[in-house]
Amino acid sequence: MPQDSPLEAAPAPARVGLFVTCLVDTMRPSVGFAAVKLLEDAGCRVEAPRAQTCCGQPAYNSGDRADTQALARQTVKAFEDFDYVVAPSGSCAAMIREHYPALLADDPAWSARAEQVAARTYELVSFLTDVRGVNAVEARFAGTVTYHDSCSGLRELGIQAQPRQLLATVQGLKLSEMQDSDVCCGFGGTFCVKYPEISNTMVGDKIDCIAKSGARTLLAGDLGCLMNMAGKLKRTGASVETRHVAEVLAGMTDSPAIGEAAKD
């Protein structure tokens, strides 16, 4: 909800470019629409430029610097006219915010532009709390949830308290912390298919922690991690459902959870 009181002069709405992320775009657009709702409720005007595709992490983490730079330039160009760039992912936001400036530092035509976009780029939930001053959401969710801290958001952007702060204001929701919530789930982008056995051991440990938390719903802020954990939970027959934290904060939990069959 907008934080401006009617007694104060309403500031001009912030123009936010939504960096949808390639996974939300292709796999779970409902997360994107949850992000749009949360941003609009926080007084932002949201656009989702069509010139965006992927932040470049698959290339970057495979050592392919040239293609990563090309994607970084494309993203910078698509977003440089916005007041803010917001992504429903700590990993993609950290890519733009923490890595683009270094990637384009040696390119005189792009380094300043990359710095400017980087400085205005945020992960969704921390943008709501830290930049827009949102301290409560209007949403209901009946049930016990547990929250996994995705690595990039946690360690590169310091996102830990913000989602918990907002989840605490969701009516009916109870948060039951799992042990080792800050330990990697074993996704790691291409890591999970390059080293499937190691990744499987890691996600196996993770779903043990999820099970022990007693929560019925698993939440996190990054779709890659969520698909990894949901895929393992489904394979083992666990009854825990998996959702992006934005869906719960926006009160948009009508669509089937990740990996669940459509209700019809």
Partner: peptide
């Protein structure tokens, strides 16, 4: 996608893309 599906299911996409 054997590297993925050997150990876990692959969640299906919702259908249409966000864009």
């Amino acid at each position: 996608a054997g590297g993925w599906t050997r150990h876990r299911d692959f969640p299906a996409p919702q259908g249409k893309t966000f864009q």
